[in-house]
Design a protein around this nucleic acid. Sequence first.
RNA 1: GCGCGGUUAGCUCAGUUGGUAGAGCAUCCCCUUGACGUGGGGAGGGUCACAGGUUCGAAUCCUGUAUCGCGCACCA
Length: 715
Amino acid sequence: MNEKFLKPYNHLEVEKNIYEEWLKSGYFNPDNLPKDLLAKNGKPFTIIMPPTNANGSLHAGHGLVMTIQDIIVRYKRMKGFKTLWLPGLDHAGFETQVVYEKKLEKEGRSRFEMEPKKLYEEILKFTLENSENIKTQIKSIGASCDWSRTKFTLDDDIVKTVYSTFKKLSDDDLLYRGKKIISWCPKHQTSFSDLEIKDEEKIEPYYYLKYGPFIISTSRPETKFGDKYVVMHPDDKRYVQYKHGDKFDTEWINGPITATIIKDSAIDMEFGTGVMTITPWHDPVDFEIALRHKLEKEQVIDERGKLLPIAGEFAGMGINKARPLIIEKLKTKGLVDKIDENYKHNIKTCYKCGTTIEPQIKSQWFVKMKPLALKALEKIKAGEVIYIPDQYEKITTHWLDNIIDWNISRQIVWGIPIPAKICDKCGTGIVDLENKEEKCKKCNGSLRKDTDTFDTWFSSGQWPFASLGYPDSNDFKTFYPTDIMETAGEIIFFWVSRMIMLGLYITGKIPFKTVYLHGLVLDAKGKKMSKSKGNVINPLDLTSKYGTDAFRMGLIIGNTPGTSLALSEDKIKGYKHFANKLWNITRFVLTSVEGENLDRTFVKWSDEDIKLNKELNSLLIDITSDIENFRLYMAGEKLYHYAWHCLADEILEQSKKVLKEGTIDEIKSRKQFLLYSLTTVLKALHPFIPYVTEEIWKDMPVANKKMLMIEEWPV
RNA sequence: GCGCGGUUAGCUCAGUUGGUAGAGCAUCCCCUUGACGUGGGGAGGGUCACAGGUUCGAAUCCUGUAUCGCGCACCA
């Protein structure tokens, strides 16, 4: 027996070598898998790794992603599939720019004072440097992905694919440049899609103001300067004497104005006084009303959230500062009817910084989503993609049923530049991949290059086929559509649903057969981890303290699909003990079977060992089905239980007696069983705890042994 | 407001088609047993949120209630 088993298991010594050995073997690359392993199956199996944001360090959630996928991938590889796990890194547009802006802020700099080109180069450098750290960290979780195929979302070929999709959308009339009301973050100074917005409940004063003969109500008096339309429901009996289009003069914030009566059934008669004034430039509902009646629209608040000259004496002020002053003025003018101080309502905020979203009218590129969504719905309803857990299917179809056009323009430098030209004169947008258009086709006006970049999800929505080299590569032909998309439930709309729509649109196929969604990794108390709370668990601290295997088990066991997991250090500690237990089981088995080799042709089993063999085999069938059905938590727990409480506590104990007092045949049989059960357990546990199993495997007395990672799955 | 999910041992959670409740950790007691004290043996602890219903039988199916969490939509 190797002397290493005389000491307790030391994960630090083992882990640093094993990953290198795996890498050197080349088996992470499906093209290098041995023929005899593939002979039994050989079908391709593919997981595209969700491209990791290259702007920070790995967090516990990444740990979970890597572990779940690695377990499945290692299992499939042992099952003889031509297994590809394709790793990727994400430039993560807006997310990364925010991270970098914070860094700039600390250094006393600001993106708004920088040349766009210089800023881009700095962020690129930052991202590339970080990418290397991230890769190292992914490796340290034991991820058996094919690094030779690593893709970055800004790689030339990816950008090329994204551009051709953009062009195709335009050619198919699914893309347009529209001047519409969009969500705008005054802090980050970019527009968003509807998904980057978070609702937040706030209690704010609510003002009832006198507007001519009416009382209108608002929580946003600072938007009201330009309001010159007063809207009510056509059926509202209280206001029958007012006719649509009637005009009246009234005193307003900054002097007399002429107001026009508008009748529109969007008005809720039950709410407030049933009358409101509208601010089409800064409110989506008002914008719609203005469109219906062809009303004028005027901007009141600028991109930085400051009031424009229309606000008169308040021009240049920020909203928060101006609001009380405006109310003060309205009070002096006798235009305030009453104020409700405790008005509870939801306001839209930037999901990243919490700044109140200021809707603005802007020209942006929009993708018409309805036609794409309809096709996706058809396929989803036909069961062509399986959701795990299945309630995500309903969540998805509901979202698709109510989908709105997707604003893919972002006013940030960090991203893929939109290959288009804009006419200065008439605002027409022209898709221009070759950068050759010079004159507007509509008005012959001069064109300028669009300075916006794509929403990062527009490019990552194409990731499965783009990363595989669509349309001509062998990889695309072999590995697409992929088998499993495993990612966080949080990005079901952002990413998963858009991949389905865009994948279907471009390739005609949903890019994956199964969607597996995991929940959040929370701290030991079940609270969301956040830097500000200081409860962030760094995976690398845990792996160095307890071992990667222990960390992986801690993430998997007790974690059901879609639900969040409270991760405690004690739990991980318990699985460190498990790795050591396995180590000691090996020590006992190897000393007990000295001189004996595993013989798969052995048949002279004792009655007792026949029973034990049966039990073990039924466990294997059981856990194989668990893995196939994504019950990793259950497979892991059953294997843990078997190794510790069946093999160690019972079988090993009982073997002491058999080996001492049994007949020659009984002893031989038991030695074979000990070897068979241990090697089998090592194989079955390998996907879960790859390091310690691979290390032990080196010393197993097995003929024609390969690396454990490419041994055949035992059932 | 609409929809979805949870509510099981002190804690974190399992419980796959209905058949007298399980795991890990924690607690308590015992064991210097030659694989392992990162160990072994044993114990305590649950009216499975509540109220009805279906059934020979319900943690599991149905209805309702409470409560927590999430998603979507919102009225200015």
